[in-house]
Simulated assay, not measured.
Amino acid sequence: MSAAALALPLMLATACSGDEGASLSKSAQEGFLPPEGRITAEADIVRNLWDGAWIAALATGAVVIVLILWACFFHRKRKNSAALPAQVRYNLPIEIFYTLVPLVMVSVFFFFTARDQNAMLAVNNDATVKVKVEAVQWSWRFTTESGGKVKQVMGKPVSDYTQGPQLVLPVDTKVEFQLESPDVIHSFWVPAFLFKRDVIPGIAKEKNRFEVTTLNKPGVYAGRCAELCGVDHSRMLFNVKLVSKQEFEQNLAAGSSQ
């Protein structure tokens, strides 16, 4: 199983390359969703980790550049001088600095990453809506259960995510996803979740689960497979529709659809 959302650069490397990309904003295609594009509470955890990592990386880069420039300007050979700058073999303070500082940086990165990963992957078994996600070559089967009612939606390969199987979810609700695959490795990805997870054959849905809490942002959001899985991988598209709780109950009561 994979907590791939926390490896955020992978969001930029999805193998999907079909026409469905045109349906997303430029920022969404690049993996940088604006605040209004995120539809789960957990997405804010990922975005904060992403922003913090960028700030730390830029700060580290600035320090390195300053040190390089300092060495270049203050330890260069002087004009009209035959003598070289002092060649120092050891400098204990600097060696301590470049040993301890990276250790501190790695420790800080590890702490925040582990903290956020645990929060993202926590399953409390109290979700009011449960969705069984079955990834097959090359589409999706969604089985939604809530309050004793069950609805199943089966899709087929499409060229636009709006034509794919639609997963209807209520706003302001905790949803548990259970992932299964009968054939090859797929990856369940809704960009607006800022999270994706591998769907691996042989791993029971009880062991490959995650939860999200939807926000009050009704709309239709693109979804896709983010793991190269075969000839129609780029057409393995679906969409998630966030609706009011009343509309969700009506949709659930309508029963299964193909």
Rank of each mutant, 00 (worst) to 15 (best):
A13Q: 09
A13H: 08
A22T: 07
S23W: 04
L24K: 01
K26L: 14
E30H: 02
L33T: 07
E36L: 00
R38Q: 14
I39L: 05
E42V: 05
E42R: 09
R47I: 01
W50V: 06
W54G: 02
R76N: 07
N80R: 13
P85L: 11
V88Y: 03
R89G: 10
Y90R: 14
L92D: 04
E95Y: 05
I96N: 02
F97V: 04
Y98T: 13
L100M: 13
L103Y: 02
V104Y: 12
M105L: 14
S107D: 11
T113W: 15
T113Y: 10
N118D: 12
N118I: 07
M120V: 02
M120D: 03
A122Y: 10
V123Y: 05
T128C: 06
K130C: 01
V131Y: 03
E134D: 06
V136I: 15
W138C: 01
K151L: 03
K151N: 12
M154L: 13
K156D: 14
T162G: 03
V175R: 12
E180D: 13
H186W: 07
S187A: 14
I200C: 01
G202W: 12
A204I: 00
E206T: 08
K207H: 10
K207Q: 12
N208C: 08
N208T: 05
F210Y: 14
V212R: 00
L215T: 11
N216Q: 09
P218H: 07
V220Y: 02
R224A: 07
A226P: 04
V231R: 13
M236G: 03
V243S: 09
E247C: 03
E247Q: 14
N251G: 04
A254V: 11
S256D: 15
